[in-house]
């Protein structure tokens, strides 16, 4: 594979390095999620998720990942976890719920996995 001169990343399994390329890909998705800092935007999304995603210009792949609650799909589509956490907040999901959703574990299994590393 051709390496671009600015691409200094190493392959870290299970890890997406959120760089300029990912930031450009995920911009509308992350912008929508950033705006969930404000309660009125969270309410707007809850009332009409499709209309809200349309207004922010999300790509179809990004919309489908949201419809499917597919966190790994959102990340692949350029979502950054710090902004996605605000989307998770709308659904009252904790970071352990989100961790479990990404690793095929229940919340309890994910918590046990964390504790096992002590």
């Amino acid at each position: 594979m051709v390496q671009h001169s600015h691409d200094y990343h190493i392959d870290i399994p299970g890890t997406t390095v959120f760089d300029g390329r990912m930031a450009m890909k995920g911009y509308p998705l992350n912008k929508m999620c950033y705006d969930f800092n404000r309660a009125e935007n969270r309410e707007g999304f809850r009332a009409d998720p499709e209309g809200w995603m349309e207004a922010y210009g999300l790509r179809e792949e990004q919309r489908q990942a949201i419809r499917d609650n597919d966190i790994l799909g959102m990340i692949e589509e350029g979502g950054n976890i710090y902004y996605l956490a605000k989307l998770a907040g709308i659904f009252k999901l904790s970071v352990q719920d989100v961790g479990g959703m990404q690793t095929g574990r229940t919340r309890e299994e994910f918590q046990a996995f964390l504790a096992s590393q002590a």
Binding site: T15, I71, G99, Q102, T103, L114, Q117, A118
Partner: peptide, 13 residues
């Protein structure tokens, strides 16, 4: 800590 991706939950004591 790592919050995102298939490696979420990674900790390295």
């Amino acid at each position: 800590h790592q919050l995102d991706g298939a490696r979420a939950g990674f900790i390295n004591k």
